[in-house]
Design a protein around this nucleic acid. Structure first.
Length: 583
DNA sequence: TGTGCGCTAATTCTACGCAC
DNA sequence: GTGCGTAGAATTAGCGCACA
């Protein structure tokens, strides 16, 4: 037996549409009647639509009825692929993204071609961009959903169109539908650049995934007629909006039993991303890549260990947040040192997990590591500057050099950044006023003899009150000894005091005599600070020198020896020299 | 006899538990 | 954290009764 009207399959036409057309073309009221002709014993009036899509009926008999090769009929059925997918046109579609039971149809397209577009079974397809109209899914006469068993669809559709007010199609809805249509028709589309060259099944993967987990996070949108449209927003603001979603689940974990970790926050999302069935989809690869990047750069709600196998090890090893153990490993320091760094506020946790574990930003750890690597102990810093530790401490206590860490009651460590020392040396270089030349070489004074304490000396050097030379040393470019204070040989004469040298001249005696005179109390002296040396220098009170000079004469000062007598001397009292007085 | 549809079993999906 | 298992929800398919 053959059907009277043996229609040909139209391009891209699937079996339910073909059967519907055959039933209409041969005067049957609906598919059910035709199915009976195929030997299907339907016990009720419902069309087993899913069976029709998947060719789960006697397709050989259908081929015979329409007098067409069975192979051609078979090519228009969907092939089950794994538990969750089916293949068609060399693509693996996610079955749950399709509605095989109910019908959506563009009345205008249908009136033009009399076929039902498989694309309209896609749940996220909501409008026809060619005719800029919503897809019809409800029978306006009774308010019920259109199904494959709805009667007289062909004749009723044109009538319904007249009565149905046009629903406004939003821009996002139009673009998403247009992109779907372009992919289905294998036309280039640049609506979502982030999708690159994903095919339709892969786009469906991405949109289903995003809308599903968006609804899970924000279920208030669940009543929406077009829940899939939210995917448009995600694709237009990729990956930022996806990151926001992941951040939401970071703050509102999917699993409440655990305390921390990827698995806790993203359990179902993570399982879906990593499932074997989805692993072949470039759409899921796109999602996984963004997920990995989020984990790498934003995820702070969990510790990581070797148990995580589904996240690339490179991602984990370069993630943005680390716990204390990992931070210590990066810094290569023991717990005690880590605690010191925390106590001294070198490091602060970015977040604290529910179980009390602190998480640190990797950037903070790396920055600190770099700082610590350039730090020296007090001993090392003193060695670098070629100063004693005592003098370096003077500079630190005087605020000239600022250490990173200073010993306290709870800490015995010094940490001085090399950068800080370099800055100190640079300041000295920039303030140096002179170069050592032949003319001023004799004026150069070692700082230890400069007459002020070391801290004051350096302060005055940096403040410009004391001139100093810069004599670069290639072998020790940080040594303080490169900077040599210079001072004038002349000092303002003091009317009241004589230096020992001045006293020698004034009294016309050898300096040993001056000290002997002081010792024997012939002249008065006192130790006084001078600019030329750090140590106080003995000074002679000028008036006492004058008194001595008036009272006593030296041998070479007298011209009439007979009128003078020796009052002190080796022969008299063992004094160093002979002192004379007029008789 | 054909049809509509309430009801429910079967199936699929989703979210979660648990052992390791 | 992983992988397996499963309870229960959601959806689909099919039974069978009522009615024209």
């Amino acid at each position: 037996m053959k059907l009277l009207n043996r229609l040909y399959l139209k391009p891209n036409e699937l079996l339910p549409s073909y059967l519907h057309r055959l039933a209409n073309g041969n005067g049957y009221r609906n598919i059910q009647t035709l199915m009976k002709l195929l030997g299907e014993e339907l016990v009720n009036t419902r069309v087993p639509s899913k069976r029709l899509f998947f060719g789960d009926f006697d397709t050989e008999k259908l081929a015979s009825l329409v007098n067409q090769p069975h192979q051609q009929i078979e090519s228009r059925q969907l092939i089950k692929h794994g538990a969750t997918r089916f293949s068609y046109m060399e693509q693996n579609f996610l079955a749950k993204a399709f509605d095989f039971t109910y019908l959506k149809v563009c009345p205008h397209c249908y009136s033009e071609v009399s076929t039902f577009n498989f694309l309209n079974s896609l749940k996220m397809k909501s409008c026809c961009t060619k005719h800029r109209c919503s897809l019809l899914s409800i029978n306006p006469d009774n308010g019920k959903k259109l199904s494959w068993s709805t009667h007289h669809l062909k004749t009723e559709l044109p009538e319904w169109v007249k009565d149905i007010p046009a629903r406004e199609i939003t821009e996002q809805e139009f673009l998403l539908n247009q992109h779907i249509e372009h992919l289905w028709e294998q036309q280039p589309s640049s609506i979502y650049p982030v999708l690159n060259n994903l095919n339709l099944s892969e786009l469906i993967d991405v949109c289903s995934f995003l809308s599903h987990f968006h609804l899970r996070a924000f279920p208030t949108h669940q009543d929406s007629d077009t829940p899939f449209l939210i995917a448009h927003d995600y694709l237009c603001d990729w990956p930022n909006k996806f990151y926001e979603l992941l951040d939401y689940f970071q703050k509102h974990p999917m699993r409440m039993k655990g305390l921390t970790g990827i698995r806790n926050c993203y359990r179902d999302l993570y399982d879906d991303l990593c499932s074997i069935e989805n692993s072949q989809s470039d759409g899921y690869r796109l999602l996984k890549k963004a997920f990995d990047q989020f984990i790498q750069s934003h995820f702070s709600n969990g510790n990581f260990n070797s148990k995580i196998t589904l996240i690339d090890s490179d991602i984990l090893s370069s993630r943005a947040f680390v716990n204390q153990t990992q931070a210590m490993a990066v810094l290569d320091i023991p717990v005690s040192k880590f605690k010191v760094l925390l106590r001294e506020s070198f490091l602060k946790p970015k977040t604290v997990l529910k179980n009390g574990d602190a998480m640190y930003a990797r950037t903070d750890i790396n920055t600190l590591k770099t700082r610590l690597e350039r730090c020296l102990s007090l001993e090392g810093a003193a060695k670098l500057l070629d100063l004693s530790q005592y003098r370096l401490r003077l500079l630190i206590n005087g605020g000239i050099i600022k250490p990173l860490l200073k010993p306290t009651k709870a800490n015995r460590d010094w940490l001085i950044e090399k950068e800080e020392l370099e800055s100190f040396v640079k300041r000295l270089v920039s303030c140096a006023q002179l170069k050592v030349t032949k003319s001023n070489k004799h004026q150069v004074k070692q700082f230890q003899f400069f007459g002020v304490d070391f801290l004051e000396l350096v302060k005055q050097m940096l403040g410009g009150q004391i001139a100093y030379t810069y004599n670069p040393l290639k072998r020790s470019p940080m040594a303080f000894k490169q900077f040599i204070p210079v001072r004038s040989m002349r000092e303002q004469p003091d009317p009241e005091w004589l230096s020992p040298a001045e006293a020698c001249t004034f009294l016309e005696v050898n300096k040993n005599v001056v000290y002997e005179l002081l010792k024997k109390d012939f002249i008065k002296g006192k130790k006084k600070s001078v600019k030329r040396t750090a140590r106080p220098v003995l000074h002679i009170h000028k008036s006492s020198a004058i008194e001595f000079k008036n009272a006593y004469q030296l041998r070479h000062q007298i011209h009439e020896p007979e009128r003078y007598t020796v009052v002190h001397g080796k022969s008299v009292d063992g004094f160093m020299i002979n002192l004379y007085q007029r008789i």
